[in-house]
Structure formats: C-alpha cells, structure tokens
Amino acid sequence: MEKRIFTEIPFVIDLEVLNERMKLRNNKRMLETLEELIKQAEAVAKPKAIYIEALIQELKEDYITIGETQFNSKNLAENVKGVDMVFPYIITSGVEVEALTKEMDDLLDQFLFDGIKTEILLCATDFISQDIKNKYGYEEITYEIPGSLEGWDMLEQKKLFALFGDVEGDIGVKLSDSNIMYPGKSVSGIYFRKVE
C-alpha cells in the first residue's frame, strides 16, 4: 500500500466566509477579534494529512478487507460495491494551531478560533480529495467515517489508524483509548470513487 504524507497543506481563511458560516451577522467587535485571530492562525498553522492507496482484498455483505484488516460494516460494504481501490485517510488542522487554543481563556476567542480551525480542516480535506481525484482521474469521490455511519462502529477507528503505522510521528495525530483524536480538529475515514 502506497502511503502519501502531506505536512504543509495550503489553506485560505476568508473573513467573509467565516462571518457567514459562523453567523456573526457582521458584528464589528467579533469581526475585529476574528481578523486578529486569523492572523495568529496563519502565522503558525500547518495542516497535515496522510492517506494510502489500498485494494479491497475481500468484499462481503457486512465487511470489507483492506490488506489484512477487516472493517465490519454492512453499509460500508454496500457503498464500495463496484470499487476496487479505496483511500483510508487521516487529516488534521495540525498541532501547531491547536497549541494556540491552550493559551486562550476568553470564551469568545475560543469560539471564534474553533471556527478558524474548522475552516483550516475543511481546506485540508478539500486539498486531499482533489489530490486523489487528480492523481487517479476520478470525477467524483465520496467517503465514510467510523462512528458517523450507521453500522460502522467508532471502535473501528483503531483498525484504521493501525493501517498507517506511526501516525503521530508522520502528522502529529494520536488516538486516545476512547477513540478521540488529538488535535480535536482531525478526521479519519475512507475515500473512494463515487459509483453512480
């Protein structure tokens, strides 16, 4: 399985987009604070990602096998029918921007900065999905995430992480015993070509 690691993904944080997305309603004080926080984030943020190209070894009614790892989910198995290759991934806004959050005591700052980190993560996921589409010539791809898909248990996230080896060493993301990812603005799952 080929592993691709990205350690400095480009991103753009647009003040007006965040104003709309976070429903700030052009509040002057909030926008001034948000603008200052965006500058702080832009100075340190290094969103990262890792994904692998993997063949589906076995596809049954209620599981798929990637390499030697079996992922148990009837819905996942149903959704990847007609697909031979999948792309397990982990994407994060990065430990650098997460570290800034720890220095904030003001609740408004924390709220606004959470929106900034979400925006960075969205940029990173867009970048990775576009990379996969470009590299493999896919028009559309989709994804599934452990814990968000009915019938694909969050516990399966441990199996997903195990596919990559040293995830923390590669991109700084670690998984707790209760399957919570750190940094908090991180996502994992499986991308695959969208079949009509």
Rank of each mutant, 00 (worst) to 15 (best):
D105G: 02
T142A: 05
I50H: 02
A99F: 01
E20T: 12
T65H: 03
G172K: 12
K135L: 04
K60G: 10
E35T: 09
T65D: 02
V86K: 03
E68K: 14
A41Q: 07
I13S: 09
K117Y: 04
L155G: 13
I132P: 00
Y89T: 05
Q157C: 08
I116P: 09
D177Y: 12
L175S: 12
I13Y: 06
E119R: 10
D131F: 00
R29M: 10
N72E: 14
L100T: 07
G82C: 10
L34P: 04
G184Y: 10
E8A: 14
V173P: 12
E42N: 15
I66H: 00
M1G: 15
E98Q: 15
K28N: 01
D109A: 12
M22P: 03
T142W: 02
K74F: 13
Q40H: 08
K185H: 12
E168N: 13
R21E: 12
F161I: 14
T92W: 04
F111I: 09
P183H: 10
A99V: 01
E144P: 00
E140V: 08
T33L: 15
V17H: 06
I66N: 04
E42A: 10
I38P: 05
G189D: 01
I141Y: 00
E119D: 13
S178K: 13
Y63T: 02
K46C: 07
N75V: 15
F127S: 03
T118A: 14
A43S: 15
F111G: 01
T92V: 07
E68R: 13
E16H: 08
Y51G: 00
K74H: 13
E119T: 12
E36K: 14
I141F: 06
T92Y: 06
L108V: 15
F11E: 00
D106I: 08
G147P: 05
Q40C: 03
P146I: 01
T142E: 13
L149D: 03
V44W: 07
K185F: 10
E42M: 11
F111P: 01
Q57F: 05
V44P: 09
G67K: 10
D14F: 03
M154D: 06
L175M: 14
L24N: 06
D109G: 03
L160R: 11
S73D: 04
P10C: 05
V12M: 02
F192K: 06
E16D: 14
E36D: 13
E2N: 12
I13A: 05
K135E: 11
D105K: 12
N27I: 08
E42R: 15
I5H: 00
E58G: 03
K185S: 10
K135S: 15
T69L: 11
K23P: 01
K74L: 13
E139T: 05
G147L: 04
I9W: 03
I64T: 02
F113G: 07
